[in-house]
Structures are given as C-alpha cells and as structure tokens.
Design a binder for these strands. Structure first.
Lengths: 182, 182, 182, 182
DNA sequence: GATGAATGAGGCTTCATTCAT
DNA sequence: CATGAATGAAGCCTCATTCAT
C-alpha cells in the first residue's frame, strides 16, 4: 500500500514492493494474479477496516451537531494529514482506470457514509436542529469540507496551512446555526 | 492533454501522444525537453486560459449571492462533467509527484480563486447578506461543494447522478439564508 | 570485450553483446549498472591477469640484456598481433573519455611496468651492461619500440609487415651495445 | 575536426559540428555525402598541411644528429601536448574501422616520414655518426620515443609529467653516442 | 545555395512476469 | 512454498538524414 500510495499504480515497482514486504519477487505471484489485481485487492484491504469506523453510529446521547462533529473530527484526525489522505488521493487518481476500485469504494464507503449522514440530517431536521430541509437530499454538502481538507493537506499544506477543525466549526455553524449568537 | 488525462503521467506513452498529434516521435523533442517537462508545460498551458475566467469579477449589479451563483454555475458548466474535471483529477493525482505543478496550480488558480471568493464573502458580510463572520477565514467552505461535484461527476456519476446545480442552491441557501423561507 | 574492441565504446551495441554472450539484453543489467560501467569493468578484468605476467621478475640468471629480451619477447608474443594489441588500442582511443580507465591502466600497468624496467636498467648500469646513465630516468625509451610494434601490427601490418623481433634486437644492440661487433 | 577529436567518430554529433561551423545542419550535406565521408575528408584535410612540414628536408648544414634533433623537436612542439596529439590518437582509435583513413595516413605520413628518416640514418651511418648499421632497416626505432611522448601527453600527463625533450636527448645519445662522454 | 523542422530507425534501459531449483 | 536469475517486450530518447521553403 505504501508503495502504491507514494508513486501511484503505474510508477510502483514490484521490486520495491517485494523488498519492503521482505519476500522475493516471485512470491508475490503466489498470492496475486498480477500487478493489477494486487493493486485492487490491496486497496480493498486497506479500505475495509475503515468502513466499520464510518458506519458505527456515534453515541446517540447529545445533539445531532455533537454527533456530526464527533464523526467529522474522527475523520479529520484519522485521515487528513495521514497516509490515509493519500489513499483517498490514490483512489481519486486511479479510479477511472480501475472501475472495480471506484465501484467498490462507492459501494463500501461513499454510499454508506452518505446514507449515515443522510440519516443524521433527517434526525436533525426532525428535531429542529437544522432548518434547511433540502439538505437531506445533498448529504455531500455536509461532507464536502472534510474532503477538501483532506486534499488540501495532501497538496497545499506547505503553501498555506489549513486549520481543518476551525473550518469544521464554521461549517457546522452554517448548517446548525451559530452556537453563541449571543 | 487528453492522453495524460486518460492514463496519468506514468502510463501515457509518447508514441500515443505523437500519433494523436499527427507528428513523429522525434518531433516532440523539438518542443519539449522530456516527458516530464512536457507534462508540466501542458498542464500549465491548459490552466492559463481558465485563470482569467476565474478572476474576472462577476457583473457587480445585484446581490452577492447572485454574483457567487453566477461564478459557481460557470464553474460547474465549464468544469464539472467536462474534460477539465479530469484535469483537476489529474492535478490531484500527480501533484505530489510534480511539486512544480502543485505550486503553479496553487499560485495561479487556488490562491487567486480563494482571494476572489474571500472578497465576495467580505462584501456580503458588510452588506448583511451573510451572517456568519468566520466564513471570511474559510473561503474553502464556499468552494468545497463545487470541488466535490467535480470529483463526483468524474468518479461516481454512473453510480448515482448528482444534480450539481440543485445542490448548489441548497448550499447557497445555507450560507445566504433560504430564499423563500415563506 | 571483443565487441568493444571491434567497434569502440560508442558504436558497440548491447544487443550484439547480449547475443554473443548468449543471454537476453536484460540479463546484462543484472551484472552491470550501465554500458559505461560494463565497459570499464571489462577493461579492468581483461587487464588484471596480464599484470602479474608483467611484474613477475624474469629468471635472474644471465645478463640483464637477456632478462629484458625475455620480457620484451614475451610482450611481443602475447600482445602484438593478438587481440590484446587491440585492447591497447582501445585504451588509447577511449582513455580520454574514460578517465577511470586511464587511471586504472596507468596505476596497474604503466607505472608498474616502468618501475620494473627502471630496476632492470639500474642493475644493468651498475653491472656496466648499459653505459648511458640517463636511461634510468626514461624507462619509456626501453619500452617505446614495443609500443610502436604493437600499434604497427594493429594498423599497418597489411601495408608493410614489421619483423618486431628483429627490430627488438637492433634496439637492444643500441642500448646494450652490439653483441658481436666483431 | 575539433569535435571528432574530442569525442571520436561515433560519439560526435552533426548538430555540434554544424553549430561550431556556424552553418545549418542541412548545409553539411551540400559538402559531404554523409558523416563517414565527412570524417574521412576532414582527417585527410587536417593531415595534408602537416605532411609538407615532415618531408621538408632539414637544413643540411651541421651533423645528422642536429638535423634529427631539429626534426624531432619540431614534431614534439607541434604535436605533443597540442590538439594534433589527439589527432594521432584519433587515427589510432578509428583506423581499423576506417581503412581508407589508415591507408591514407600510412601513405602520406608514415611511409614518407619513415623514408625521410631512413635517408638520414643512412647518411649518418655513411658519415660514421651512427655505428649501428641495422638501424637503417628500422627507422621506427628513431621515431618510437616521439610516438610514446605524444601518447603519454595525451593520456598520462596528469599522472606523471614527462619531459619529452630531455627524453629525446637521452634517446639521441643512445643512437649517436653520448655527446660529452668526458 | 542554405536552412532547420521533421522524421523514424535504432539504441539504452526498465520492469512485469516466468520458471528451474 | 519460496526464490531470484533470466527474459524480452516496451518505453524514452537521440541523432543522421531528408526536403519543402
């Protein structure tokens, strides 16, 4: 994974993968059909453990805003600025050339994440925490700033550092209403 | 550009570029030092004409919301779902391996686009169109849904079509307040 | 070696080397970093076994002239008119473009050969076999005719055959005095 | 010539030649059939003006030794340590691959030079300046130290500087007898 | 005559894949 | 199962040569 993340699919050498894995090059072919299927399987394997994190419903105690905030902070801490941010970049980069991966990613991560988010938005609307009813149709709006933060860290952090958590607060204020209007 | 967009830097063959350009392979080297600098120059060339579009201030007549909306619609129409969306994907994908490109893109597009957006946000706050004062610190929040729309079109449109303009309206409602709450 | 000798460094094709070696082209790169280092290593390898021959002191029995003569004849037989003569030509030809080779050749062959020759000249002067004392400063003078013979065989033999051994006798007569002036 | 001398035939680029000549690449083909024939003609052209120098009989006034010495010094000054030394090296290097050049060089330079030298040796023997009668059969022996000096300057001067003129004196002492035995 | 942009064959090198051990 | 030497297809790049202007 680290090799593919660092160089992309085409520029990654099986030699380097084998060396880092501590096995001989031939050994790879005992486990994978070829480079492509290895790439696809590795991406899948890397995503799976993260899926359960995303779909575990947050502690249902407090406000929906608190739940969304907890989810978003977890996402930022576990993804933005880590190797996983580059995994997101890798999927964006290679997705069109590996439809199987884009499909898998949509099915396992995107659609589930959006469904969970949509449920939270619905709940917030019901409770009156969110006033914009159309938001339920576009849960992407809730997630967009996190995506941008992840890509920003990966591409532009050295040009202009971004305080992702502060941005998140402003974002939540926009959606849930400012916390301390007074 | 089309070749690089379709396959990424490493997987693109100069043979194909030459064939599509209708020249012999050697001819490429009369114009570019090597594959890398060709890639960088092509990206630059593809971006430049778009920069002026982004930085041209919108007709200052009506409300700020109208100006932002006009800008955003233009962006969606000219980028999302077109080849330019793939150019954005390409920059995200290859940025880390071509710092010169990431630098150029940040300098020419990102920082300028954000500055223009920040000015509009400031104006809207002054006029009372936007109530959230912190937004001026995070113009990325204004742009994030457009980025997500662009990537969505490129990666997941076939799984679940996205009505980007409708999403944009909801986004603007969140920021400027719903148009017709009544 | 044969390929490099026949065509020089630049004009030699790795294809031909591989074919002659009975391996695939890629196999070469398991043993050598690139064409240049292969050339350098091959030259080194070809020279090494000859160095010991040169520095083995001749049987110390008879006169110094006999020792020098034995050495020179060995040199002529083993080099002039053989592939090794072309190796000398190759080093002369490519030396300036491969300083590493010129350095190695000077260190391993030239300086050692001259040192050995200087010792013999010194001995001969001590014993009174050679009357010209300055010769010890220019052992190159002792060796020059052999060098010329080697190059002659390689370049002009077909224009005018050279009896190198007879020329050697005349040379030795000049230095040690004619054998049978009477 | 300078380009061929600096890199050898195969590694020299017509681009560089044209640039240095101040003409366009195509212009070369108005004067030469191809790279090979250009090389051959250039070598010929470079040699010709030197031939007359070599064959001009030295001032016949003094001793033969003085005449040989004048000739040899001229050769050393005009060749050793100059670009012409590299021309000699070039001919040695490319001779076998360009028989036409080797032929020309033998006919115009080597055979004439040796003939001139042979005549001088014959004269010296007649006059009693040289006692070794066989030398007339091997004029190469007279010239060998100069060849070695030329190659030495080109290849090993930086390892061990050679005082070619002092070496020449010792060489002449060997052949003509030491100047001041007392 | 002169130009130099264009050509494309050919060279060096890389690397995914195989297979005898 | 594991190895890693060997393969050879394929890619990047160079450069002698051509030819329309």
């Amino acid at each position: 994974m680290d090799e593919f993340i660092a160089r992309g699919f085409a520029a990654t050498r099986l030699d380097d993968i084998a060396r880092r894995a501590g096995v001989a090059k031939g050994t790879i072919y005992l486990h994978f059909k070829d480079k492509e299927s290895m790439f696809e399987e590795l991406i899948r394997t890397a995503i799976v453990p993260f899926v359960s994190r995303l779909t575990t419903p947050p502690a249902p105690g407090g406000s929906v805003r608190d739940m969304v905030e907890a989810l978003a902070k977890m996402f930022l801490q576990e993804v933005a600025g880590t190797r996983r941010a580059d995994l997101v970049r890798l999927i964006i980069a290679e997705g069109p050339r590996f439809p199987a991966i884009a499909d898998f990613y949509y099915r396992e991560v995107v659609s589930r994440g959006l469904a969970a988010m949509r449920a939270l938005i619905q709940l917030a609307i019901t409770r009156g925490e969110i006033r914009e009813p159309n938001l339920v149709a576009y849960p992407q709006l809730m997630i967009a700033p996190m995506m941008v933060a992840v890509l920003w860290k990966s591409l532009f952090e050295r040009h202009a550092p971004l305080d992702a958590e502060a941005m998140l607060q402003t974002h939540l204020d926009l959606i849930f209403g400012a916390r301390r209007p007074q």
